[in-house]
Amino acid sequence: MSPEISNQSLLFLVVFVLVPLTLSYYYQLGLSKGIMWSSIRGTIQLFAIGYLLTYLFDLPAYIGIPFMLTIMITVASFHARKKGKGLPSVLGIIFIGLIVIEGSVLGLWLLFDMIEFTPNEVIPMSGMVIGNSMIAMGLALERLKSEFKENEGRLTAALSLGAEPKQASQIIIQRTLGASLIPNVDKLKTIGLVQLPGMMTGLILGGVSPIMAIKYQLVISLSIFSAVSLSAIYITLMMYKYFYNNKMQLKHMEFDQ
């Protein structure tokens, strides 16, 4: 087991903040306030979550786990919704998607005995799945919006040739999914070679053997990969329809120059 970080040592972390702060001041980047604020906010958030987790880990699993998962999914839904601003029902669709995806992943973990149904295992692992799914949904939404904007002419052409919205959106759906999935395939390819994944690093620092750490890392990496893919596909297929009305017309289009 590695030595515990004392509060005194922790204080010296201030040095890590002083470096960017000095740079910002010296080069007049105007970031000093932001750096100070985010460092303090981040520290408080982490301590708060640390105490909350300590409390939750002591609760019975059937209370602590649903409680924390609900909070995580709710916060993630509101965050991902920002990327889909202007699209109707997006919050509800994200929320349901995250519940189903997290529920399925958790179900598989438990079914195949990969983790125990205890707060200290389920909550951090689920946090990673929910967080990554949230990012994937946000990116897919952003991409979907920009693809629809960029390809307005092509979509109009497809509709005018007699395509239904699903057929007209084919290229956009492919591109959105490709853009969302390719970085994850690449990430998986270089895993462990470029940088040791966070969870594995944490476990090794915590004294777990590298092989055991890798096993956990594999579970989480592949689960995230699958959750991210599902999130991107789900949100893209659910949301592209909202760019059309029920008369197979593109919404919010200005045709006249």
Partner: peptide, 10 residues
Amino acid sequence: GLVMQAPNLF
């Protein structure tokens, strides 16, 4: 059928 100002080819 419609032909637009830009070709908008696929």
